[in-house]
Simulated scan of single mutants.
Amino acid sequence: MKFWLICDYRENYTNYANLGTNTMYNDHPSIKNINEILTAINSLGYDCDYFGGIPELINAIDTKRTFENCIFLNFTDGMDQQYSRVQAPALLDILNVPYSGSGVFQSVIMNNKHFCKKALLKLGIDMPKSCVVSHDMPINLKIVEEMHFPLFVKPNCSGSSLGISASCVCHSKDEVLLKTSELLDNFDEVIIEEYVKGIDVTNYLIGNTNSYLVNNIVTAELFDNSPYAIYGIEEKQNKLRKLYLDNEYLPKDIVEKTKKQSVMIAHTLGVHDICRIDYRINLSTQNISFIEINSAPRFSSTSEIGFIASKNNVTFSNMVQYYISTVMDRLK
Protein backbone atom coordinates (compact mmCIF):
# COMPACT_ATOMS: atom_id res chain seq x y z
CA MET A 1 0.00 0.00 0.00
CA LYS A 2 1.32 3.41 -1.03
CA PHE A 3 0.44 6.63 0.76
CA TRP A 4 0.54 10.01 -0.96
CA LEU A 5 0.57 13.08 1.27
CA ILE A 6 -1.44 16.04 -0.07
CA CYS A 7 -0.67 19.48 1.33
CA ASP A 8 -0.25 23.07 0.09
CA TYR A 9 2.43 24.66 2.19
CA ARG A 10 2.50 28.04 3.90
CA GLU A 11 5.61 29.41 2.28
CA ASN A 12 3.88 29.52 -1.13
CA TYR A 13 1.11 31.87 -0.04
CA THR A 14 0.44 35.38 1.29
CA ASN A 15 2.11 36.22 4.59
CA TYR A 16 -0.37 37.68 7.11
CA ALA A 17 2.15 37.99 9.94
CA ASN A 18 2.79 41.42 11.42
CA LEU A 19 5.15 43.57 9.40
CA GLY A 20 8.62 43.78 10.88
CA THR A 21 8.70 40.16 12.06
CA ASN A 22 10.45 37.21 10.49
CA THR A 23 7.43 35.00 11.06
CA MET A 24 5.51 33.46 8.17
CA TYR A 25 1.80 33.02 8.92
CA ASN A 26 -1.34 32.11 6.97
CA ASP A 27 -4.01 29.41 6.78
CA HIS A 28 -1.62 26.66 5.61
CA PRO A 29 0.83 24.20 7.22
CA SER A 30 4.52 24.98 6.95
CA ILE A 31 7.05 22.90 5.02
CA LYS A 32 8.44 21.88 8.42
CA ASN A 33 5.00 20.58 9.42
CA ILE A 34 4.64 18.60 6.18
CA ASN A 35 8.06 17.02 6.65
CA GLU A 36 7.20 16.18 10.27
CA ILE A 37 4.09 14.26 9.18
CA LEU A 38 5.97 12.56 6.34
CA THR A 39 8.81 11.49 8.65
CA ALA A 40 6.36 10.14 11.22
CA ILE A 41 4.46 8.07 8.64
CA ASN A 42 7.61 6.53 7.23
CA SER A 43 8.98 5.87 10.73
CA LEU A 44 5.90 3.72 11.32
CA GLY A 45 6.98 1.48 8.43
CA TYR A 46 4.62 2.82 5.76
CA ASP A 47 5.63 3.81 2.25
CA CYS A 48 4.71 7.48 1.95
CA ASP A 49 5.81 10.35 -0.30
CA TYR A 50 4.79 13.96 -0.65
CA PHE A 51 2.56 14.28 -3.73
CA GLY A 52 2.07 18.03 -3.72
CA GLY A 53 -0.99 20.21 -3.34
CA ILE A 54 -3.91 21.50 -5.41
CA PRO A 55 -1.81 22.42 -8.50
CA GLU A 56 -0.32 18.91 -8.59
CA LEU A 57 -3.77 17.32 -8.28
CA ILE A 58 -5.02 19.46 -11.18
CA ASN A 59 -1.99 18.39 -13.22
CA ALA A 60 -2.69 14.74 -12.44
CA ILE A 61 -6.22 15.16 -13.80
CA ASP A 62 -5.05 17.06 -16.89
CA THR A 63 -2.45 14.40 -17.70
CA LYS A 64 -4.92 11.56 -16.98
CA ARG A 65 -2.71 9.91 -14.37
CA THR A 66 -4.04 6.74 -12.78
CA PHE A 67 -3.27 5.33 -9.34
CA GLU A 68 -3.59 1.85 -7.88
CA ASN A 69 -3.17 0.34 -4.42
CA CYS A 70 -2.75 3.70 -2.71
CA ILE A 71 -4.42 6.13 -0.32
CA PHE A 72 -4.14 9.91 -0.49
CA LEU A 73 -3.72 11.53 2.92
CA ASN A 74 -5.38 14.94 2.72
CA PHE A 75 -3.75 17.52 5.01
CA THR A 76 -4.34 20.56 2.83
CA ASP A 77 -6.45 23.65 3.43
CA GLY A 78 -6.53 24.13 -0.34
CA MET A 79 -5.33 27.32 -1.97
CA ASP A 80 -6.48 30.86 -1.17
CA GLN A 81 -9.89 30.93 -2.86
CA GLN A 82 -13.20 30.81 -1.02
CA TYR A 83 -14.20 27.30 0.12
CA SER A 84 -10.59 26.24 -0.32
CA ARG A 85 -10.97 23.15 1.88
CA VAL A 86 -13.36 21.70 -0.68
CA GLN A 87 -10.76 21.74 -3.47
CA ALA A 88 -8.82 18.59 -2.54
CA PRO A 89 -11.87 16.33 -1.95
CA ALA A 90 -13.37 17.47 -5.27
CA LEU A 91 -10.17 16.82 -7.22
CA LEU A 92 -9.54 13.49 -5.50
CA ASP A 93 -13.08 12.40 -6.39
CA ILE A 94 -12.36 13.27 -10.03
CA LEU A 95 -9.19 11.15 -9.85
CA ASN A 96 -11.35 8.38 -8.35
CA VAL A 97 -8.87 7.54 -5.61
CA PRO A 98 -9.42 6.75 -1.92
CA TYR A 99 -8.49 9.58 0.43
CA SER A 100 -8.58 10.60 4.06
CA GLY A 101 -10.92 13.18 5.51
CA SER A 102 -14.44 14.28 4.65
CA GLY A 103 -15.97 14.36 1.20
CA VAL A 104 -17.04 17.31 -0.92
CA PHE A 105 -20.51 18.00 0.51
CA GLN A 106 -19.42 17.63 4.13
CA SER A 107 -16.43 19.92 3.52
CA VAL A 108 -18.65 22.57 1.91
CA ILE A 109 -20.95 22.63 4.92
CA MET A 110 -18.11 22.74 7.45
CA ASN A 111 -16.36 25.48 5.47
CA ASN A 112 -19.38 27.79 5.88
CA LYS A 113 -19.82 28.80 9.51
CA HIS A 114 -23.32 30.23 9.10
CA PHE A 115 -24.90 27.42 7.08
CA CYS A 116 -23.17 24.75 9.15
CA LYS A 117 -25.13 26.04 12.12
CA LYS A 118 -28.30 25.87 10.03
CA ALA A 119 -27.55 22.22 9.28
CA LEU A 120 -27.37 21.48 13.01
CA LEU A 121 -30.56 23.27 14.10
CA LYS A 122 -32.54 20.06 14.68
CA LEU A 123 -29.99 18.87 17.26
CA GLY A 124 -31.27 21.46 19.72
CA ILE A 125 -27.75 22.53 20.74
CA ASP A 126 -26.92 26.07 21.76
CA MET A 127 -25.56 28.29 18.97
CA PRO A 128 -25.29 32.08 18.68
CA LYS A 129 -27.75 33.70 16.27
CA SER A 130 -26.10 34.81 13.06
CA CYS A 131 -26.56 36.13 9.56
CA VAL A 132 -24.27 36.12 6.54
CA VAL A 133 -23.27 39.07 4.35
CA SER A 134 -21.52 39.16 0.98
CA HIS A 135 -21.16 41.50 -1.99
CA ASP A 136 -24.23 39.82 -3.48
CA MET A 137 -26.11 39.54 -0.18
CA PRO A 138 -26.21 42.95 1.56
CA ILE A 139 -26.54 43.28 5.31
CA ASN A 140 -30.06 42.89 6.68
CA LEU A 141 -30.26 45.55 9.38
CA LYS A 142 -33.59 44.23 10.65
CA ILE A 143 -31.97 40.90 11.52
CA VAL A 144 -28.97 42.66 13.09
CA GLU A 145 -31.20 44.85 15.26
CA GLU A 146 -33.02 41.76 16.57
CA MET A 147 -29.76 40.25 17.86
CA HIS A 148 -28.33 40.85 21.32
CA PHE A 149 -25.29 43.12 21.36
CA PRO A 150 -22.34 42.92 21.41
CA LEU A 151 -22.05 41.17 18.06
CA PHE A 152 -19.02 39.44 16.61
CA VAL A 153 -18.14 40.08 12.94
CA LYS A 154 -15.67 37.77 11.18
CA PRO A 155 -14.97 36.01 7.85
CA ASN A 156 -17.49 33.26 7.19
CA CYS A 157 -15.32 30.81 5.26
CA SER A 158 -11.77 31.34 6.56
CA GLY A 159 -9.70 29.71 9.28
CA SER A 160 -6.57 30.32 11.36
CA SER A 161 -8.12 33.47 12.87
CA LEU A 162 -7.60 35.38 9.61
CA GLY A 163 -9.42 38.71 9.78
CA ILE A 164 -10.08 38.37 13.51
CA SER A 165 -9.05 40.98 16.08
CA ALA A 166 -10.48 42.77 19.10
CA SER A 167 -12.25 45.21 16.75
CA CYS A 168 -14.49 42.35 15.59
CA VAL A 169 -16.52 42.79 18.78
CA CYS A 170 -19.12 45.42 17.87
CA HIS A 171 -21.32 47.26 20.37
CA SER A 172 -23.50 49.22 17.95
CA LYS A 173 -25.08 49.00 14.52
CA ASP A 174 -22.57 51.55 13.19
CA GLU A 175 -19.64 49.45 14.42
CA VAL A 176 -21.15 46.38 12.73
CA LEU A 177 -21.53 48.24 9.42
CA LEU A 178 -17.96 49.55 9.60
CA LYS A 179 -16.39 46.18 10.45
CA THR A 180 -18.47 44.34 7.86
CA SER A 181 -17.40 46.78 5.14
CA GLU A 182 -13.76 46.47 6.20
CA LEU A 183 -13.81 42.66 6.07
CA LEU A 184 -15.61 42.55 2.73
CA ASP A 185 -12.61 44.35 1.23
CA ASN A 186 -10.58 41.18 1.84
CA PHE A 187 -13.08 38.31 2.22
CA ASP A 188 -16.00 37.16 0.07
CA GLU A 189 -18.39 36.41 2.93
CA VAL A 190 -18.78 37.76 6.46
CA ILE A 191 -20.76 36.28 9.34
CA ILE A 192 -22.36 38.48 11.99
CA GLU A 193 -23.22 36.58 15.15
CA GLU A 194 -24.02 37.25 18.77
CA TYR A 195 -20.90 37.41 20.93
CA VAL A 196 -20.78 34.54 23.41
CA LYS A 197 -19.21 35.19 26.79
CA GLY A 198 -17.06 32.37 28.06
CA ILE A 199 -13.82 30.52 27.52
CA ASP A 200 -12.53 29.08 24.22
CA VAL A 201 -12.78 25.30 24.05
CA THR A 202 -11.98 22.99 21.16
CA ASN A 203 -12.85 19.30 20.82
CA TYR A 204 -10.43 17.32 18.63
CA LEU A 205 -11.79 14.10 17.11
CA ILE A 206 -9.98 11.34 15.23
CA GLY A 207 -12.24 8.44 14.31
CA ASN A 208 -15.61 7.63 12.85
CA THR A 209 -19.04 6.69 14.18
CA ASN A 210 -18.83 4.46 17.26
CA SER A 211 -15.02 4.40 17.18
CA TYR A 212 -13.01 7.47 18.19
CA LEU A 213 -9.33 6.94 18.96
CA VAL A 214 -9.00 10.60 19.95
CA ASN A 215 -11.79 12.60 21.60
CA ASN A 216 -10.21 15.27 23.76
CA ILE A 217 -11.14 18.72 24.99
CA VAL A 218 -8.54 21.50 24.90
CA THR A 219 -9.37 24.66 26.84
CA ALA A 220 -7.50 27.86 25.97
CA GLU A 221 -6.99 30.43 28.70
CA LEU A 222 -6.06 33.70 26.98
CA PHE A 223 -3.39 35.97 28.41
CA ASP A 224 -5.65 38.95 27.66
CA ASN A 225 -7.94 39.48 30.68
CA SER A 226 -10.11 42.17 29.08
CA PRO A 227 -13.92 41.63 29.11
CA TYR A 228 -13.92 40.69 25.41
CA ALA A 229 -10.64 38.80 25.06
CA ILE A 230 -10.27 37.57 21.47
CA TYR A 231 -7.87 34.98 20.08
CA GLY A 232 -7.17 36.84 16.87
CA ILE A 233 -4.50 36.48 14.23
CA GLU A 234 -1.83 38.24 16.32
CA GLU A 235 -2.56 36.11 19.39
CA LYS A 236 -2.65 32.90 17.35
CA GLN A 237 0.54 33.75 15.49
CA ASN A 238 2.34 34.27 18.82
CA LYS A 239 0.47 31.50 20.71
CA LEU A 240 -0.65 33.88 23.46
CA ARG A 241 -2.64 31.39 25.51
CA LYS A 242 -2.28 28.55 28.01
CA LEU A 243 -3.81 25.17 27.21
CA TYR A 244 -5.49 22.63 29.48
CA LEU A 245 -6.64 19.09 28.68
CA ASP A 246 -10.12 17.80 29.50
CA ASN A 247 -10.95 18.28 33.20
CA GLU A 248 -7.67 20.04 34.06
CA TYR A 249 -9.75 23.19 33.66
CA LEU A 250 -13.36 22.17 33.06
CA PRO A 251 -15.66 20.20 35.38
CA LYS A 252 -15.83 16.54 34.42
CA ASP A 253 -19.56 16.65 33.60
CA ILE A 254 -19.03 19.58 31.19
CA VAL A 255 -16.18 17.68 29.51
CA GLU A 256 -18.28 14.56 29.01
CA LYS A 257 -21.30 16.53 27.80
CA THR A 258 -19.15 18.42 25.28
CA LYS A 259 -17.52 15.24 23.98
CA LYS A 260 -20.92 13.58 23.55
CA GLN A 261 -22.24 16.65 21.71
CA SER A 262 -19.21 16.71 19.42
CA VAL A 263 -19.71 13.09 18.39
CA MET A 264 -23.37 13.88 17.66
CA ILE A 265 -22.36 16.89 15.50
CA ALA A 266 -19.73 14.88 13.59
CA HIS A 267 -22.23 12.09 12.96
CA THR A 268 -24.95 14.51 11.81
CA LEU A 269 -22.63 16.24 9.34
CA GLY A 270 -21.20 12.96 8.05
CA VAL A 271 -17.63 13.84 9.02
CA HIS A 272 -14.90 11.38 8.03
CA ASP A 273 -11.80 10.56 10.07
CA ILE A 274 -10.93 13.92 11.65
CA CYS A 275 -12.36 17.26 12.72
CA ARG A 276 -12.00 19.97 15.33
CA ILE A 277 -15.11 21.53 16.88
CA ASP A 278 -14.90 24.93 18.56
CA TYR A 279 -17.11 26.06 21.42
CA ARG A 280 -17.44 28.86 23.92
CA ILE A 281 -18.37 27.61 27.37
CA ASN A 282 -19.78 29.83 30.10
CA LEU A 283 -18.80 28.19 33.38
CA SER A 284 -21.24 30.34 35.37
CA THR A 285 -24.25 29.11 33.42
CA GLN A 286 -22.61 25.86 32.20
CA ASN A 287 -23.79 26.81 28.71
CA ILE A 288 -21.96 25.08 25.82
CA SER A 289 -22.22 27.16 22.63
CA PHE A 290 -21.22 25.65 19.30
CA ILE A 291 -19.18 28.13 17.22
CA GLU A 292 -17.75 26.25 14.22
CA ILE A 293 -16.18 23.03 12.95
CA ASN A 294 -12.93 22.59 11.03
CA SER A 295 -12.75 19.76 8.47
CA ALA A 296 -8.94 19.97 8.18
CA PRO A 297 -7.54 20.89 11.60
CA ARG A 298 -3.82 21.55 11.91
CA PHE A 299 -1.94 18.30 12.55
CA SER A 300 1.47 19.05 14.06
CA SER A 301 3.47 18.55 17.23
CA THR A 302 2.92 22.24 18.09
CA SER A 303 -0.86 22.32 17.50
CA GLU A 304 -3.70 20.98 19.65
CA ILE A 305 -3.05 17.40 18.54
CA GLY A 306 0.57 17.67 19.66
CA PHE A 307 -0.58 19.05 23.01
CA ILE A 308 -3.06 16.16 23.40
CA ALA A 309 -0.31 13.67 22.58
CA SER A 310 2.04 15.19 25.14
CA LYS A 311 -0.60 15.22 27.86
CA ASN A 312 -1.46 11.57 27.16
CA ASN A 313 2.22 10.56 27.16
CA VAL A 314 2.16 9.36 23.57
CA THR A 315 4.42 10.43 20.71
CA PHE A 316 3.41 12.48 17.69
CA SER A 317 3.99 9.33 15.62
CA ASN A 318 1.38 7.57 17.77
CA MET A 319 -1.12 10.26 16.80
CA VAL A 320 -0.24 9.77 13.14
CA GLN A 321 -0.82 6.04 13.60
CA TYR A 322 -4.25 6.70 15.13
CA TYR A 323 -5.12 8.79 12.09
CA ILE A 324 -3.89 6.22 9.55
CA SER A 325 -5.65 3.37 11.39
CA THR A 326 -8.90 5.38 11.37
CA VAL A 327 -8.63 6.03 7.63
CA MET A 328 -7.75 2.44 6.74
CA ASP A 329 -10.55 1.00 8.91
CA ARG A 330 -13.10 3.25 7.18
CA LEU A 331 -11.86 2.49 3.67
CA LYS A 332 -12.01 -1.26 4.27
Results as ranks from 00 to 15, higher is better:
residue 237 Q to A: 11
residue 144 V to Q: 06
residue 324 I to T: 04
residue 265 I to V: 13
residue 132 V to T: 10
residue 96 N to K: 15
residue 172 S to W: 03
residue 169 V to N: 09
residue 322 Y to R: 03
residue 332 K to I: 15
residue 199 I to P: 00
residue 175 E to L: 05
residue 319 M to R: 10
residue 315 T to V: 07
residue 167 S to C: 07
residue 31 I to A: 13
residue 86 V to I: 03
residue 65 R to W: 07
residue 18 N to R: 12
residue 37 I to L: 05
residue 71 I to G: 08
residue 138 P to W: 11
residue 170 C to P: 03
residue 133 V to F: 05
residue 8 D to L: 06
residue 311 K to W: 08
residue 188 D to E: 15
residue 105 F to E: 14
residue 77 D to P: 02
residue 93 D to N: 11
residue 44 L to V: 03
residue 176 V to Q: 00
residue 218 V to Y: 05
residue 249 Y to V: 02
residue 217 I to T: 02
residue 133 V to H: 09
residue 71 I to T: 14
residue 67 F to V: 01
residue 215 N to S: 14
residue 112 N to T: 07
residue 307 F to Y: 10
residue 217 I to S: 00
residue 68 E to S: 09
residue 179 K to I: 14
residue 186 N to F: 13
residue 52 G to V: 10
residue 243 L to Q: 14
residue 119 A to D: 09
residue 197 K to C: 01
residue 222 L to P: 08
residue 173 K to Y: 01
residue 30 S to M: 08
residue 11 E to H: 01
residue 134 S to A: 13
residue 2 K to W: 00
residue 255 V to S: 08
residue 160 S to Y: 00
residue 87 Q to D: 08
residue 182 E to M: 12
residue 253 D to W: 03
residue 47 D to S: 15
residue 194 E to A: 07
residue 71 I to F: 02
residue 278 D to G: 07
residue 161 S to T: 14
residue 119 A to L: 08
residue 171 H to M: 04
residue 97 V to Y: 01
residue 199 I to F: 06
residue 294 N to W: 01
residue 46 Y to D: 03
residue 15 N to T: 08
residue 299 F to E: 03
residue 187 F to I: 11
residue 91 L to V: 06
residue 192 I to W: 00
residue 63 T to I: 08
residue 331 L to Q: 13
residue 25 Y to M: 07
residue 322 Y to V: 10
residue 144 V to P: 06
residue 227 P to C: 01
residue 332 K to L: 15
residue 33 N to F: 06
residue 223 F to V: 05
residue 209 T to I: 11
residue 158 S to M: 15
residue 177 L to K: 15
residue 200 D to L: 11
